[in-house]
Computed example of a mutant assay.
Amino acid sequence: MSFRLFIIYFFCMIGIFSQTTENWNKKGINALSQKDFLTAVDSFKKTLKDKPNDAFANYNLACTYSLLLAQCEDIESEVHIYHLIQEAIKSKPSYQKKLHTDSDFFILRGKYHFQKLSGKSKREILTSITWFGPSPGAYGPMDQFQFKEDGSFIYHKLDMTESNPIGKLEFTGRYKWINDSKLEIQFYDPSPMKEGGKNKNLRVNYSDGKLEIQGFDHSFTDDNDRCSA
């Protein structure tokens, strides 16, 4: 084969490859719009098999998995969704801003790692999500914290002493931000915990996606155990 024919063949193959990628992406987005999630997954995966860095396919496969997750369908793990989003942003940074408003990700909006991928700081994430305790039974998380931007917080705790329906106790307080890994909280009266009859400042260790609060025998995360409740 002459050099000239090789060049023609080379560019023809590029054209065919690009067209195939475009066709799979188009098929995937059409399936996604029709809520045919399995076809959408298959189509975007075929694009990524030949073009792993394709921003469009990475982003929309993440969207598809998020919608399946909202239905409690089995998917390749939540971590895999974050990996797809990260790859999409790496190839096309404008996707990071889109995360703030894209309704396909509504089920992940209350997740620490999703908020982090959207560009928020740890301090911003603290007040953007609800922090849940463990779910030992059928009633969901036994307690939870919600931190507000004005420095206050609300703590809810299941009242297991009541019968049908289970009651919920509410306590309020304030918190003090120290740094990206530490803060302090103090409950107002009445308080769920006192030492020597007085409320005290409680130390909080804030690691990636987890709060460990002095006086509590469990940690708090973004997981509300929704699908198993």
Rank of each mutant, 00 (worst) to 15 (best):
F56Y: 14
A57P: 03
A57S: 14
Y59D: 14
Y59V: 15
Y59H: 13
N60M: 11
N60D: 10
N60I: 08
L61T: 08
L61R: 07
L61S: 08
L61D: 05
A62K: 07
T64L: 08
T64A: 07
Y65D: 02
Y65G: 08
L67K: 15
L67C: 03
L68T: 02
L68I: 05
A70D: 12
A70F: 01
Q71K: 14
Q71I: 07
C72V: 05
C72A: 08
C72W: 07
E73G: 10
E73R: 15
D74E: 10
D74W: 00
D74C: 00
D74P: 05
I75M: 03
I75F: 01
E76G: 08
S77Q: 10
S77I: 08
E78Q: 15
E78D: 09
V79M: 00
V79H: 04
H80K: 14
H80Q: 08
I81P: 07
H83E: 11
L84D: 00
I85G: 04
E87P: 01
A88S: 13
A88D: 04
A88I: 12
A88V: 12
I89T: 05
I89R: 07
I89K: 08
K90T: 05
K90S: 10
S91P: 00
K92G: 00
K92F: 12
S94R: 06
S94L: 07
S94Y: 07
Y95S: 09
Q96M: 12
Q96I: 06
K97R: 08
K97A: 10
K97E: 15
K98W: 02
K98H: 01
K98Q: 08
L99W: 01
L99H: 02
H100G: 01
H100M: 11
T101C: 02
D102F: 09
D102S: 14
D102I: 02
D102N: 15
D102G: 10
S103P: 04
S103N: 04
D104K: 04
D104W: 05
D104T: 00
D104L: 02
F105W: 01
F105K: 06
F106W: 09
I107E: 11
I107L: 09
L108F: 04
L108W: 01
R109T: 05
R109P: 04
R109Y: 11
R109N: 12
R109D: 10
G110W: 05
K111H: 12
K111N: 13
Y112S: 11
